[in-house]
């Protein structure tokens, strides 16, 4: 078996230590004897939707995000839509999450989005939403806590078609917009979220869930992953939760 991961714009969209998420997937695959293939797609490069099973896009600085938005819509939108429709897993964090929607407002400009989720991101008066955060989610089949750190100026609003990834544990973070208590988006095997930190090392269960989804798409059945000695992983999760006050 092999986990095939594609990072989108890793040179631009890497501001919140996004490589930690990739490294985490790599090690947890290798420790289980699962092969790990990692490819990247940057400016102007096309994407083969069938060649990869887990797509990743991280966060970037404003200037980078502006540059990426235009290029991604032009050269990668159709391939990503087809991959997600076909059951591929996609994890989009922070700036990458904002780009999943219909549009993204940056200063006076409105950037185009991928249109993979019914959401839009706008600018509003008020400070950036920054801090440790814990959300409750049912992705993976049971109610669990995701812990991380959020730092975003944009406010994201979900449309009627969109399902949130989870709800902010009351009083322990801001989530999509600091108002409606919702966080992230979740559609098929696609997850968008403001939680970085990086997210996966703080929540090993989500990393393993994404590995399972990606392998299921490639090999037809969902594998049962070998358990790993996760003492430090559990301690790190507890530490991130404690930082968010949960």
């Amino acid at each position: 078996m092999e986990l095939r991961v594609l990072s989108l714009y890793p040179d631009q969209m890497n501001i919140y230590a996004d490589r930690g998420n990739i490294l985490f997937l790599q090690r947890r695959s290798e420790w289980r004897g699962i092969g790990f293939q990692w490819k990247c797609a940057g400016q102007g490069e096309s994407v083969d939707p069938a060649a990869h099973d887990l797509f990743y896009i991280g966060g970037g600085q404003d200037r980078d995000q502006r540059f990426v938005a235009a290029d991604m819509v032009e050269t990668k939108r159709a391939a990503l839509e087809s991959a997600v429709d076909d059951g591929a897993a996609l994890l989009a964090v922070c700036g990458g999450y904002q780009l999943l929607g219909e549009s993204y407002q940056l200063g006076e400009e409105t950037l185009p989005g991928l249109g993979l989720a019914d959401l839009r991101t706008v600018r509003e008066e008020g400070p950036r939403l920054i801090g440790n955060v814990a959300i409750e989610t049912e992705i993976g089949g049971r109610k669990r806590i995701l812990a991380g750190f959020e730092n975003h100026g944009g406010r994201t609003y979900l449309g009627k078609e969109a399902r949130p990834l989870g709800t902010v544990v009351k009083g322990h973070g801001y989530g999509n917009n600091g108002g409606d208590g919702l966080e992230g988006v979740w559609r098929d095997n696609m997850v968008g979220t403001y939680l970085h930190g990086p997210l996966l090392p703080k929540n090993a269960w989500l990393a393993d869930h994404l590995i399972e989804l990606a392998l299921e798409r490639r090999y037809g059945t969902r594998p049962t992953l070998d358990p790993l000695p996760d003492e430090l992983e559990r301690a790190a999760h507890a530490s991130a939760r404690a930082a968010a006050g949960v």
């Binding site: 490294l23 090392p201 430090l232 301690a235 790190a236 507890a238 530490s239 991130a240 930082a243």
Partner: peptide, 21 residues
């Protein structure tokens, strides 16, 4: 945030039995 530091080192390839928290 000691446990998160330790986790980073484990994934950097430092042997887990040499890491204390």
């Amino acid at each position: 945030r000691a446990p998160e530091m330790a986790l980073r080192l484990k994934y950097a390839g430092w042997p887990e039995d040499r890491i204390a928290v």
